[in-house]
Simulated assay, not measured.
Amino acid sequence: MEYLLDTNIVGYILKGVASNKLKNKLMMINPDDVFISQITHAEIIYGLQKGGNIIKHINRVNSFLETLSILDWDEQCAHAYGKVRNELRLQGVTVQSMDLMIGAHAIGHNMTLISNDHIFDHFKQFGLVLENWQTA
């Protein structure tokens, strides 16, 4: 099984506030099965820029990024995105663009999304497998 970490999960890890459950899960699975989307990578870089003290945090971020693979946005993601976005629109569900893209990335590659964001509950109807490793 392959896992896609949502940006909030990566944030918990980088900020040192990951729960014991999250830490234990990450230690139990094969690192080759853990990924982030290019979208999450962009959000991490934005967070560094926004925080202002890039030099202080860049080494920790780079060390973390070296432990996993960053998945490219591809045709499978684009097709999943189009379908999910349209269906959610028809249902009157509003999802932030980055979350929509991350969810579509997981769906497009049949990955389990690890997130602490309940907006992804709306994605289960499209086959998304969602797990929350941060909370009990």
Rank of each mutant, 00 (worst) to 15 (best):
M1V: 15
E2I: 14
E2A: 15
Y3P: 13
Y3R: 03
Y3L: 11
Y3S: 08
L5F: 07
L5K: 05
D6L: 04
D6S: 03
N8M: 06
I9N: 00
V10C: 04
G11M: 08
G11Q: 07
Y12I: 03
I13M: 02
I13N: 00
K15G: 06
G16S: 02
A18R: 04
K23H: 12
K23F: 12
K23W: 11
N24T: 07
N24Q: 07
L26N: 07
I29N: 07
D32Y: 09
D33Q: 14
V34W: 01
F35T: 02
I36D: 00
I36P: 01
S37M: 11
I39E: 00
A42W: 02
E43K: 06
I45N: 13
G47A: 01
G47P: 01
L48F: 02
G51N: 08
I54W: 00
I58S: 12
N59G: 09
N59W: 02
N59T: 15
R60T: 15
V61N: 00
N62A: 14
N62H: 13
N62G: 12
S63L: 15
F64Y: 10
L65D: 04
E66Q: 14
E66P: 05
E66H: 13
E66A: 13
E66F: 12
I70G: 05
I70T: 13
I70M: 03
L71K: 15
D72V: 07
D72C: 09
W73T: 14
D74L: 12
D74N: 15
C77M: 09
A78D: 11
A78F: 14
A78I: 12
A80T: 02
G82K: 07
G82Q: 06
G82V: 05
V84Y: 05
N86Q: 11
E87F: 11
L88I: 09
R89S: 06
L90E: 11
L90W: 03
G92L: 01
T94G: 00
M98S: 13
M98R: 13
D99V: 07
L100E: 02
M101W: 08
I102Q: 01
A104P: 10
A104K: 08
A104D: 05
G108M: 07
G108S: 11
N110K: 09
M111R: 13
L113M: 03
I114Q: 05
I114Y: 07
S115A: 13
S115D: 03
S115W: 14
D117R: 04
I119G: 01
F120R: 02
F120V: 01
F120E: 00
F120I: 02
D121N: 14
F123R: 03
Q125W: 10
Q125M: 09
G127Y: 09
G127N: 04
G127S: 10
L128A: 03
V129E: 11
L130H: 00
E131G: 08
W133T: 05
Q134A: 03
